[in-house]
Amino acid sequence: MATTNRFGLRAALVGLALAVSGCATGAQSVDAPPTAPPLVFPPGSVYVAMGSSFAAGPGITTQVESAPQRCGRSNDNYPHQFSRLRQLLLIDVSCGGATTHNLLGPWNELPPQLDAVDAGTRLVTITIGGNDLGYIAGLFRASCAQQPCPDIPTPSETQYADVAARMDQIVAAIRSRAPEAHIVFVDYPKVLPPEGVCAAIPITEAQANVARDIARRLEEITAQVAARNGAYLLPASRISEGRDACAAEPWMNGARNPEPLDGVAYHIRYAGMEAIAKALDDLLPR
Rank of each mutant, 00 (worst) to 15 (best):
R84E: 15
R86T: 14
Q87P: 03
L89G: 01
L90P: 07
V93F: 05
V93N: 07
V93M: 09
V93W: 02
G96A: 04
G97E: 09
A98S: 13
A98R: 06
T100Y: 00
T100W: 02
H101L: 04
N102C: 02
L103P: 08
G105R: 08
G105I: 02
P106V: 10
P106E: 13
P106H: 12
N108S: 08
N108P: 09
E109S: 06
L110T: 08
P111Y: 13
Q113W: 09
Q113A: 06
Q113R: 01
L114M: 11
D115N: 08
D115R: 04
D115Y: 07
A116Q: 05
V117Y: 12
A119P: 00
A119C: 05
A119M: 03
G120F: 10
T125L: 05
T125R: 07
I126L: 15
D132M: 12
L133F: 04
L133V: 02
L133D: 06
Y135F: 15
G138D: 15
G138L: 15
L139I: 10
L139R: 09
F140Y: 13
F140M: 06
R141V: 02
A142F: 03
A142E: 00
A142S: 08
S143N: 04
C144N: 12
C144K: 12
A145T: 13
Q147S: 15
C149S: 12
P150T: 14
P150I: 13
D151A: 14
I152N: 10
S156Y: 12
E157Q: 15
E157Y: 03
Q159A: 15
Y160W: 14
A161Y: 13
V163R: 08
A164F: 11
A164I: 03
Q169I: 01
Q169E: 11
Q169H: 05
A173W: 02
R175W: 05
S176L: 08
S176G: 01
A178K: 02
P179H: 06
E180F: 07
A181C: 04
I183M: 04
I183P: 04
V184K: 10
V184F: 10
F185Q: 03
D187Y: 10
Y188C: 09
Y188Q: 11
P189M: 00
V191L: 13
L192K: 06
E195D: 10
G196N: 12
G196S: 11
G196R: 12
V197Q: 11
A199L: 13
I201L: 15
P202H: 10
I203Q: 15
T204W: 12
A206T: 14
Q207F: 10
Q207M: 08
Q207I: 01
A208E: 13
A208K: 15
